[in-house]
Design a protein around this nucleic acid. Structure first.
Lengths: 153, 153
DNA sequence: CGGGTGCGTTGCAAAATGCAACCTATGCCT
DNA sequence: AGGCATAGGTTGCATTTTGCAACGCACCCG
């Protein structure tokens, strides 16, 4: 398998994890996707310590995943909303949720509805070419255009 | 928004994060999906400290995400392979990878091929009902059958 | 015997985290 | 004005989690 020796330094998964690779950050994102925008409510719902939450919100804003915008003056109060970059994390959160539901005890506290067709569904990964649903076994990973093979391979 | 006050204790995302909610664990899973099975190779590729790696592998095995099986006797050597439960994490990893590629610098070290149709593709979340690709804006979250609304709502 | 490989475990220092208290600025009630 | 409440943090300190390097063990090869 040639893949075994591509250069991990250039890994998209690792890059993503640098920004959202800790439990607290993901919980914050969960709240963002559910529509919570205020510090206090997010804090209560996630149970994350206030100092940590403050830190994570700042980092998410710094990385352009959330945007801080004032919703009132005097005193200035901010709310945190998902940017496009943040909204693109939706598949990650949804996949995580579905996996947690399927393998973590079977409870489904939330269901999703497709606005387009109105159906209550579990979105799945599908091949955009043929439309078939795909899982780990249906796919093959190949070195991409930007892969760097190691000398020590 | 009724969703704002469902009980977070029963959250699938949180449950999933308890098992795979740290950077190292996810990196280990990346290796698993790429086909690495041995302690040493995983350690070199992830850069995770050996004691941490040992701990994470044990936890993943304990949770049924990886299975440890001997690939030789004398001395007994084990390899770590994904179980069904582990394979189900594929969408999470793929989503993470795609997001990292799109927003983390644009490099695509790995590309995916659908074995079924042969196309090089980026699998996307789709509505299993109508087949349309879906993003955050196309979906609505509703309290599910097992949602517990808070008294303090 | 000496060296190398595979797979960990142990000890200790450094970093991240949790908790509770504190602070600022404002509004609201009396 | 005084007292209380709300929103959004910051600060200090104890606890937990990591990282690093060294060590251990079991085996194989020459």
């Amino acid at each position: 398998m040639s893949l075994a020796d591509w250069d991990r330094d250039n890994c998209s998964v690792a890059r993503a994890l640098e920004l959202i690779g800790d439990r607290h950050t993901v919980l914050v994102l969960r709240e963002a996707f559910v529509g919570e925008r205020r510090f206090d409510r997010i804090q209560r719902h996630t149970g994350v310590a206030r100092n940590i939450l403050s830190d994570r919100l700042n980092k998410l804003v710094a990385h352009g995943i959330l945007a801080r915008r004032p919703y009132q003056e005097r005193p200035v109060r901010h709310e945190y909303v998902l940017t496009e970059k943040g909204l693109d994390l939706y598949p990650v959160l949804v996949s995580l949720m579905q996996w947690g539901t399927r393998h973590g005890g079977g409870e489904a506290p939330i269901v999703l509805q497709h606005k387009g067709c109105g159906a209550l569904v579990e979105p799945r990964l599908a091949c955009p070419d043929c439309g078939e649903a795909v899982g780990a076994r249906d796919m093959r990973a190949l070195p991409g255009p930007d892969a760097v093979l190691k000398q020590t391979a």
